[in-house]
């Protein structure tokens, strides 16, 4: 545990500057919108305040790729490969740090979105949309976004590791591996999904406005989600094995 925490701290420290820059960019953007909220239509401000959220999965994709690329670039891979730690522990420390980064920027952005829109758009919502309903929706939406945002991180990390077997065109190989792995995991996940049909579906409360507002409960099929998550765990483990047993300096 001590060695894992130390690896995790090292990863957090490596991305700390990037984390601060990301938060400052989000802060600047949301403050700009806050300033404009009295002038611009509230719907436009709300839509624009979500803009940073659309970039985060792309940042995670880049972070996943960089997480190992810089180790080889700076020769620090020598240090990692001499550690008496299994590959999964080293990769998990990187994943945990990536997750921490992702979680902190999401939490900060959601907080800023509330702050910017609280006095305008959110206050103007119809009375049947309660505060608790909004918080619950944001929580579950955020959780879903958080879990699925880690997919590009794991896949780009795996792509980077595979590209290390080649001495040339590493970037191009990473892109090809990333696309192929995406295709394969979604195909296999859809084939495996029926095995998990016994798992209860996820109930989600939805508001339908058809003349008058009514609350409906819809059910999201959990089987493809479970099979996709298992595929991602498999790819993560495969990458860790490559690091531990086959990759070299």
């Amino acid at each position: 545990m001590k060695s894992f925490l130390s690896l995790y701290k090292k990863e957090i420290r490596s991305m700390f500057f990037f984390m601060i820059v990301s938060i400052l960019i989000v802060l600047s953007w949301e403050l700009f919108l806050f300033y404009k909220s009295s002038v611009w239509p509230s719907g436009l401000v709300l839509g624009l305040s979500f803009l940073p959220v659309s970039f985060f999965p792309l940042i995670m994709l880049w972070q996943g790729y960089q997480s190992y690329r810089y180790e080889w670039k700076d020769d620090t891979i020598y240090m990692l490969l001499t550690l008496p730690s299994p590959g999964w522990k080293i990769s998990l420390a990187k994943l945990a740090a990536g997750f921490s980064y992702y979680l902190s920027v999401i939490l900060f952005t959601v907080f800023m979105i509330f702050l910017v829109n609280d006095k305008t758009f959110i206050s103007d919502l119809p009375s049947y949309i309660s505060r608790s309903y909004i918080y619950k929706s944001v929580f579950f939406g955020g959780l879903f976004y958080l879990v699925f945002g880690m997919i590009p991180y794991v896949l780009s990390q795996f792509s980077c590791l595979v590209s290390r077997f080649y001495s040339k065109f590493k970037g191009l190989i990473s892109i090809v591996v990333f696309i192929l792995t995406n295709y394969v995991i979604y195909r296999v996940a859809s084939l495996v999904a029926p095995i998990f049909n016994w798992v209860p579906n996820i109930p989600v409360t939805n508001i339908a406005v058809n003349g008058e507002a009514t609350f409906q409960t819809i059910h999201i099929n959990s089987a493809p989600i479970i099979s996709l998550v298992l595929m991602i765990i498999f790819i993560f483990y495969l990458g860790s094995l490559l690091l531990e047993k086959h990759l070299e300096v």
Partner: peptide, 30 residues
């Protein structure tokens, strides 16, 4: 690898670390 100390020819340290941090990091790993 816990029983092997390897000293490579190149500089394999994280350049943002201090000597004390590297010693501490190594201490937690071995």
């Amino acid at each position: 690898k816990d029983q092997i100390a390897f000293l490579p020819e190149i500089n394999h340290f994280y350049d943002w670390m201090t000597i004390a941090e590297i010693i501490n990091f190594t201490n937690t790993q071995f």
